[in-house]
């Protein structure tokens, strides 16, 4: 008889305990740790490149001019950390390490549990205080608007950085950013509805519109928010800009990755714009 391993294994007792301590609700899905191929390939390429050059320089120093030893020493000094980095990443990756194969991100109804080398910790969507998301077309499989790296600070001060080198961010990235934004939106709107402006990075949401460095874009000029990714597949900066109802840019563009809770900002602007439209403004 054969069994589906993931189902048969179920959740570890540490994961179940961590999830129940934070009342995370039902388990939904799990994402295994990944082997970071781009990191391994780049470190491997640097190791081979500098290793070959260092070998050639050493050979040249032995048979030719001893002055070449200087170049050989420099090249070996560059090769050594590349090789050490390659081995460090490889030996800690799920491809080689049995322990790393146990690491996972488990998604629950109200949050997630991350089982990793430093321990197993649970996080609730509604306890995320700040979420910074780096967007990029880092690999072909991930689209340009997928967060490939996320930095989170919880209300209790805990911090975590989760990147495409840890887990499949093409699946987990959009999920965590959407759930956190949905959990934060009611809090942000409640605070805003009491007459308080809310600042997201360089942008401030006010009753009159969205302000940037003393310049205000009124709500009547705002149709929504656009996130663009400039410069092709290898630029790691994405920008957020306000657009009018004809999708023409209004106001300024800000760096998406440097803006805390940018997804909540997007939802908030969309909510306010929809509310104003419903009352005919």
């Amino acid at each position: 008889m054969t069994l589906l391993v993931e189902s048969a294994l179920g959740l570890g007792p540490d994961v179940t305990l961590a999830a129940s301590m934070r009342n995370l609700g039902e388990h939904r899905e799990s994402y295994p740790a990944v082997t970071s191929k781009p990191l391994l390939v780049s470190l491997g390429m640097f190791t081979v490149l500098f290793g070959v050059l260092a070998g050639a320089a050493t050979w040249g120093a032995i048979i030719g001019d001893p002055v070449v030893w200087v170049a050989a020493n420099i090249l070996w000094t560059i090769t050594a950390p590349c090789l050490l980095g390659f081995l460090w990443v490889l030996l800690r990756s799920p491809a080689v390490s049995r322990r790393a194969r146990q690491f996972r991100v488990h998604v629950f109804e109200h949050g997630w549990v991350w089982a990793r080398r430093s321990g197993t910790e649970a996080y609730r969507w509604d306890e995320v205080q700040a979420l910074f998301a780096n967007l990029a077309a880092f690999t072909a499989e991930i689209s340009s608007r997928t967060p490939y790296g996320i930095r989170i600070t919880m209300v209790d001060g805990r911090r975590m950085d989760i990147w495409h080198v840890h887990v499949d961010m093409a699946r987990f990235g959009p999920l965590v950013s959407a759930r956190v934004a949905q959990a934060q939106l009611p809090k942000a709107m409640a605070y805003f509805d009491k007459g308080n402006p809310i600042t997201f990075g360089d942008l401030t949401v006010t009753d009159e519109g969205v302000a940037y460095g003393g310049f205000l874009t009124p709500w009547s000029d705002i149709g929504g928010v656009e996130i663009d990714h400039v410069g092709g597949n290898h630029v790691e900066e994405s920008h957020l800009s306000l657009v009018d109802r004809q999708c023409r840019p209004r106001g300024t563009r800000v760096n998406f990755g440097l803006m805390a809770n940018a997804y909540t900002f997007v939802l908030m602007v969309e909510t306010i714009v929809a509310k104003l439209r419903s009352v005919g403004q």
Partner: peptide
């Protein structure tokens, strides 16, 4: 720190 204001109040 700025986010803490609306996270706590909300």
């Amino acid at each position: 720190e700025a986010a803490a204001a609306w996270m706590r109040a909300g």
